[in-house]
């Protein structure tokens, strides 16, 4: 394995950890934070590819990650607001209890 593959393996494992957390925990906040970890893993991939395979436009990877971080911040803000709204509505933030969208 070369350095690029090591970085990618690292990001895959981080992604899996975040996914496991998002799937296993019942607390909505932790689920959201698990999603953030998965986003972080994706960003690591961008940086790894940027670092090890230079392209003609030298800053592309970095700019992609910057946008991704901005979107992640927006996602976190909306997500946490949703958690608070759910809490106000149902007095709980357990996801298994929030099944109002059940068909």
């Amino acid at each position: 394995m070369n350095a690029l593959q090591l970085c990618l393996a690292f990001s895959s494992l981080l992604f899996a950890v975040g996914l496991a957390g998002a799937l296993a925990r019942s607390n909505a906040i932790i689920v959201l934070l698990g999603l953030e970890l998965m986003l972080n893993a994706a960003n690591i991939n961008f940086i790894a590819f940027w670092r090890f395979s230079p392209s003609s436009a030298p800053a592309t990877g970095v700019i992609f990650v910057l946008f991704s971080i901005a979107v992640a911040a927006a996602e976190a803000a909306v997500g946490m607001a949703l958690v608070i709204a759910i809490y106000r509505h149902q007095k709980t933030i357990r996801l298994p209890d929030a099944t109002d969208l059940k068909g």
């Binding site: 992604f15 899996a16 996914l19 496991a20 998002a22 799937l23 296993a24």
Partner: peptide, 9 residues
């Protein structure tokens, strides 16, 4: 969850 995450990993 662990099974799904392990599969993805």
């Amino acid at each position: 969850a662990v099974v799904a995450a392990a599969g993805v990993a």
